[in-house]
């Protein structure tokens, strides 16, 4: 076609190929030892037979997956029907993590936008301020949140003090408390990638949109959001994925009935009551879910950059 189109990125001759292999070696070793081997071990464990005092017997078995998906009655000899207990736990986990992600997006996006639109020399300070609470251990933060939210805690004292409510709002041990805990645990993982994307955003695009009769809302939806979408998707993944497997917030803020996948898996490896193959199988199912989410988002990203 006539007219020179911008030249595409051609594969360059790799001058530093050897150095690159060498430099990547430590990463590969760490990844192999601490990620790939443990995951592979879990995969194997999930197909083994359970030992009653924890641990496994090296004998192939599908019992763990069977227990997850099928109910065979108390003695295991009924006709199999779908076991909803664990699927429901998974489903609730997805819902809880999803809600936390949406909260984080609603709070994190304006925060990130605010930081990215400050004068350049003060942005670092704002980013620093966002990260300060995260210097404190997650367990301590979650425990203090429990203290803040409980019926006789400062939040309810304050609300009753200014007369908004007459009796304490019951927050602790609800779904909402878990969502709040997860949201708070992972908020910076939403703010930082979006901040990075908005900072790179060319604000004259917003001016151009306003010039072309777009309202503020239309500018946000049609121009700004598509431009910073990679940052938003990255932020959502970084909040959603750890929320899905988290067990601190659900345990401490959700109480016994707000069980999530993380707690379910944790239980299987704790003390003598555990069931290692079942915990491993649940982990594998969780991992598959996460991989599906990642693959879907990767496909979205590719479409966004499509030609």
């Amino acid at each position: 076609m006539a007219g020179g189109a911008a030249s595409g990125g051609k594969a360059q001759t790799d001058t530093y190929k050897e150095a690159r292999t060498l430099l990547l070696l430590p990463s590969w070793l760490v990844l192999g030892f601490f990620v790939l081997i443990p995951v592979f071990m879990m995969l194997i464990y999930s197909f083994l037979t359970k030992e009653f005092r924890g641990g496994v017997i090296w004998e192939f078995s599908l019992a763990a997956y069977d227990q997850f998906f099928f109910d065979r009655g108390l003695f295991g000899d009924d006709a199999p029907s779908i076991e909803w207990t664990y699927i429901n736990i998974f489903w609730r986990s997805i819902w809880q993590a999803g809600a936390a992600t949406i909260f984080a997006l609603l709070i994190g996006f304006p925060t990130a936008y605010f930081i990215a639109t400050r004068p350049p020399n003060s942005r670092q300070m704002w980013v620093f301020l966002v990260t300060i609470p995260y210097w404190v251990n997650l367990l301590i933060r979650t425990v203090s949140m429990k203290f803040l939210l409980r019926d006789q805690g400062p939040l309810n004292d304050f609300l009753m003090g200014i007369g908004i409510v007459d009796s304490p709002i019951h927050i602790i041990n609800t779904d909402f408390a878990v969502q709040l805990g997860l949201f708070y645990s992972y908020l910076p993982f939403m703010v930082l990638p979006i901040y990075a994307a908005v900072e790179r955003y060319n604000f004259s695009l917003s001016e151009a949109a306003a010039d072309l009769y777009a309202s503020k809302w239309q500018t946000l939806r049609r121009v700004l959001l598509p431009a910073v979408k990679p940052g938003v998707i990255a932020g959502c993944i970084l909040v959603f994925v750890p929320s899905l497997g988290s067990f601190l917030a659900p345990d401490l803020l959700g109480g016994a009935k707000n069980f999530m996948i993380g707690s379910l898996i944790e239980e299987q490896f704790k003390g003598n009551a555990g069931n290692w193959p079942f915990g491993a199988a649940a982990s594998m199912i969780l991992l598959s879910l996460v991989l599906i989410v990642l693959m879907l988002s990767a496909r979205q990203q590719n479409k966004g950059e499509g030609v």
Binding site: A208, D211, L212, A214
Partner: peptide
């Protein structure tokens, strides 16, 4: 009037075409 209420359009120096 804000820019989106003015029947005036601009060709920007760096063009500001919407990349997506």
């Amino acid at each position: 009037l804000p820019p989106n209420k003015r029947p005036i359009n601009t060709v920007f120096q760096n063009y500001a075409l919407f990349p997506h």
